[in-house]
Nucleic acid binder design. Structure first.
Length: 587
RNA sequence: GGGGUCGUAGUUCAGUUUUGGUCAGAACGCAGGCCUGUCACGCCUGAAGUCGCGAGUUCGAAUCUCGUCGGCCCCGCCA
């Protein structure tokens, strides 16, 4: 396989049936085991590991490899030999054979690497990032990168077979102030002006619909100058999809088909389709999240009706009181951790109730009558030993807080060892607008080219908070994999939406005039979706960090640890660009 | 922008509070030697640290104080 001038076989393919063959292998020294009379060398490449043996009479070879150690690059010529039965290594694919060395060429030496190249590695990530090319030699990371390739390959096949065209769009584009901060690129030809690195190909793909390419996709690199998280990178990849003459159902069907195929091709997992659907409201009220993990229960319940009238101030003054049952017996210390979570999400704290010895216990129990207690026990399905959390306040914040607590319960008790379950669902019926308290104005929840639900269009002016968009998110195991929408392709709807959020015609013209202009010439009804490739692979391979699925990722401070980016540049370059630094670090 | 946490041989860590002083330690790796069958080879010997960096307190700082840099995690932000 993959024979070249320097090798006849890879280090992963020789089998019992290769016995007696003369072969040439090339690879890295994984391990040398020198027994004096006899020497073993495990040779590693992308495909596997093969044991090379230098026999006792080959003093010349032994002398030659005297100084060889891990990560030297060798070319070994020799004969494949079946190992004696009791010498077979069942751990590796080539464990039934070994190659008896006849000739060894040291293709390159290696310094002692800063960390060992082995699978069960425990090294500070900073060091792994600095020597990423060494980290990538390890199986775990290597397999991820291979899986990433397979994912892309599988998607290309599926989309191409379904009539989608792969079309590239510019990375260097213009600033569109909505949404995330974008990376700016100063222009040498236009002093004082800047390109923006595309946050996504959103506007281009919609114009491709105007152009008549009714099924488009692209593996689009997206750039966002925002703060990192364990699932966010400043540059990441979306599998950007847009279709014409469709409604939500068409997008769901294609996306479900795509996921089904990818999971089958990459990890041999058969997804059930169609995926479950929840409205945004339902997801929030039952799970406290617009991206709930449905691998476990712990559903939130509205208990406002039970606690109103209890006389307890917090309950009386709050819009809503919600609760969920952890179905666990938590210690005082554990409960404190939940209080910390609540504080982080802006609630003063949580109440908890424990059911022990046939009695509800907790600070708020004294406010509840017998009937209320019984209702509570029934509604939350409380069993002996259960700890229940209760929170009061405004709808969204209270639910989000309990949602964060529920997530903690899940992490602590329910999802351990269940990374190989995949619980996909669609979240639908998102609100179109959100009221910004600080600026006292309506803001779009998604982006402004979203089509409202037909039945809500009449509320656009009178009651924007009541308008839902043709918006959908694809969620799996508590992670937002993707979001998309059916677009507002007609001028009148667009203008009504812009009016709600206080965007004047001139302003809109300035920001995305080219899109509005394009929409004048027969824009077809269209919509799309853009699954995040990195997150999808994270979920599929059960990794909890996005850096693990990217060959050369950035650190949390958006630095390239290996290449030491970003870097300062010569003053000459700045001058050329008409730029001058205001502050320079260390000056 | 805010909060948390970590930083000690090449690597992973112990030592840091109660107690500032026999506190520069282990394992792996590395180097030298021995060893027909290992695959986490084994045995013997050895080298190896600006305790992230800087300042301060002190007779004395890995240990206490302040600052700073970097990694990771979270909130804000962000599809």
């Amino acid at each position: 396989m993959y024979e070249t001038k320097l090798r006849t076989h890879t280090c992963g393919e020789l089998k019992k049936s290769s016995d007696g063959q003369n072969v040439v292998l090339a690879g890295w020294v994984k391990k040398k085991r020198d027994h004096g009379e006899i020497v073993f060398i495990d040779l590693r490449d992308r495909y596997g590991v093969t044991q090379v043996i230098i026999e006792k009479e080959r003093r010349d070879l032994k002398e030659q490899v005297k100084n060889v150690r891990g990560e030297f690059v060798l070319q070994v010529s020799g004969k494949v030999r079946k190992r004696p039965l009791d010498m077979v290594n069942e751990e590796i694919a080539t464990g039934e054979i070994e190659v008896v060395a006849d000739k060894i060429e040291i293709l390159n030496e290696s310094e002692v690497p800063p960390f060992e190249i082995k699978d069960d590695l425990n090294v500070q990530e900073e060091l792994r990032l600095k020597y990423r090319y060494l980290d990538l030699r390890r199986n775990t990371l290597k397999e991820t990168i291979i899986a990433r390739h397979k994912t892309i390959q599988s998607m290309r096949t599926f989309l191409s077979e379904n009539g989608f065209l792969e079309i590239e769009t510019p990375v260097l584009t213009r600033n569109t102030p909505e949404g995330a901060r974008d990376y700016l690129v100063p222009s040498r030809n236009h002093i004082g002006k800047f390109y923006s690195m595309a946050q996504s190909p959103q506007l281009y793909k919609q114009l491709l619909m105007v152009a008549g390419f009714d099924r488009y996709y692209q593996f689009a690199r997206c750039f966002r100058d925002e703060d990192m998280r364990s699932d966010r990178q400043p540059e990441f990849t979306q599998i950007d999809i847009e279709m014409s003459f469709v409604d939500e159902e068409d997008v769901y069907r294609i996306t479900e088909g795509l996921m089904k195929k990818v999971f089958h091709d990459v990890i041999s997992y058969e997804l059930d389709t169609p995926f479950l659907r929840l409205t945004y409201k339902e997801a929030m009220e039952r799970y406290g999240s617009d991206k709930p993990d449905l691998r476990y229960g712990c559903e939130i319940n509205d208990i406002t009706d039970i606690v109103k009238g209890s006389g307890f101030g917090v309950f009386e003054n709050a819009d809503f009181t919600f609760a969920y049952n952890t179905k666990q017996s938590l210690s005082r210390k554990q409960i404190d951790e939940y209080n910390d979570v609540a504080k982080k999400y802006g609630l003063p704290g949580l109440f908890y109730v424990k059911y022990t010895e046939g009695e509800l216990k907790g600070s708020i129990v004294k406010y509840l009558g017998e009937i209320s207690k019984e209702k509570l026990i029934e509604r939350l399905d409380i069993l002996s030993g259960n700890t229940i959390f209760i929170a009061s306040g405004k709808w969204k914040r209270t639910l989000e807080t309990l949602g964060a607590c529920r997530r903690k319960t899940g992490n602590d008790f329910y999802i351990e060892g269940r990374g190989n379950e995949y619980n996909f669902l669609w979240i639908t019926r998102f609100p179109m607008f959100e009221w910004n308290e600080d600026e006292e104005k309506w803001e779009p929840c998604h982006h402004i080219f979203t089509m409202p639900l037909d039945e809500d269009i009449k509320f656009i002016e009178s009651d924007p908070g009541k308008v839902h968009g043709k918006l959908y998110d694809l969620v799996c195991n508590g992670v937002e994999i993707s979001s998309g929408s059916i677009r507002a392709f007609k001028k009148d709807i667009q203008e009504r939406i812009m009016n709600v959020i206080g965007l004047s015609n001139e302003e809109a013209e300035k920001r995305f005039g080219f899109l509005i202009e394009g929409f004048k010439y027969g824009a077809p009804p269209h919509g799309g979706i853009a699954p995040g490739l990195d997150r999808l692979i994270m979920i599929m391979l059960n990794r909890d960090n996005i850096r693990d699925v990217i060959a050369f990722p950035k650190s949390l401070q958006a630095s390239g640890i290996m290449e030491d980016s970003p870097s300062e540049v010569d003053d000459r370059r700045l001058t050329e660009l008409g730029l001058k630094l205001i502050k320079k670090k260390g000056s």
